[in-house]
């Protein structure tokens, strides 16, 4: 037995020696560094441009599919479909589908000023009725792609696509020039695959994390969240509800020129589909109907 153990030990040591030699051979010298900060401003600009172009090229198929799939939202929804959006403080608001055609969607968002205002989205501050076209939906998807690939603002973005939702996270580091501190902002959106792209604002997790000088987390993160679920349908012909709609601000997802061509002095522009929306829908009284829902009039 000792003889066998001696042989095994000798064989093992021999193999270990030779394996070590081969690993030594395999370890070619390789040095890798990152030099973006040391490049000229023109180089940085060109690199950012190329990064965004490459990202859009790489992800375009995925986003094209998303755009195609979610356009089913306009036929998948029906007037009266109702969704409840809840923030992490327990406050709720309702989103009600008013009218659906192949190319147009009108939905009502119930105002609740107690709802958290995530990153200035200003979605739930007052009652609003949105006109949201299929064109807007597709443009919104394009804008999500552009924002997702916007390397000058965001970095280390990630996405995950499943049969039920397209989820993506935007990560941004904001620096306070006065204090010299940094904050990492994360916005994680979930866009159901058969819902209008606007619905991403109803399912979002937003967090702010202070960073120390080494870029590590400093203290606890602050976070806000919206979650959405479909609840029992609403009777959109209910008189009280129509009153709410009439009092609501009307919002249209078009540019200013298109808005003026609508021949509606109350048309308020939400410009446009960016994350967050760059302009909010301010109050405007309704003087003429933006749309007609069979069975009742505004």
């Amino acid at each position: 037995m000792n003889a066998i153990n001696t042989k095994r030990s000798f064989a093992n040591k021999t193999l270990l020696l030779v394996i070590s030699c081969f690993i030594l051979v395999s370890c070619n010298k390789r040095k890798e560094t990152y030099i973006y900060d040391s490049l000229s401003d023109q180089s940085k600009t060109n690199i950012d441009q190329k990064q965004q172009a490459d990202c859009i090229k790489d992800e375009s198929t995925l986003f094209d599919n998303l755009s195609t799939n979610t356009s089913e939202a306009f036929t998948d929804l029906e007037a009266g479909d109702t969704f409840e959006v809840k923030d992490n403080g327990g406050e709720t608001s309702k989103v009600i589908i008013l009218y659906v055609s192949a190319s147009n969607l009108y939905f009502y968002i119930q105002g609740n000023s107690s709802m958290n205002d995530i990153n200035g989205y200003d979605i739930f501050s007052i009652d609003r009725v949105y006109k949201y076209r299929l064109l807007d939906h597709v443009a919104h998807i394009d804008d999500i792609l552009a924002e997702y690939c916007n390397s000058s603002t965001y970095s280390n973005n990630t996405h995950n696509s499943s049969s039920t939702a397209f989820e993506y996270t935007l990560i941004e580091e904001r620096e306070d020039a006065i204090n010299g501190t940094s904050t990492e902002i994360k916005q994680a959106f979930a866009l159901p695959t058969k819902r209008p792209a606007f619905f991403q604002f109803f399912d979002v997790l937003y967090s702010e994390q202070a960073l120390d000088e080494n870029g590590d987390a400093d203290g606890d993160a602050k976070s806000s969240e919206y979650t959405v679920e479909q609840i029992a349908d609403t009777d959109v012909e209910d008189t009280d509800f129509i009153d709410d709609i009439q009092a609501a601000t009307q919002c249209v997802f078009v540019d200013q020129d298109t808005c003026s061509s609508i021949d509606d002095t109350t048309c308020t522009v939400i410009n446009l589909y960016s994350v967050p929306p760059t302009d909010s829908c301010q109050s405007a009284s309704l003087t003429s109907p933006l749309f007609e829902v069979p069975g009742f009039e505004l």
Binding site: R30, I35, I47, Q51, S151, S155
Partner: peptide, 12 residues
């Protein structure tokens, strides 16, 4: 064999 690479940034 030696290789030295200078890249723009980690995420790109």
């Amino acid at each position: 064999k030696e290789r030295e690479i200078e890249r723009a940034k980690e995420e790109y």
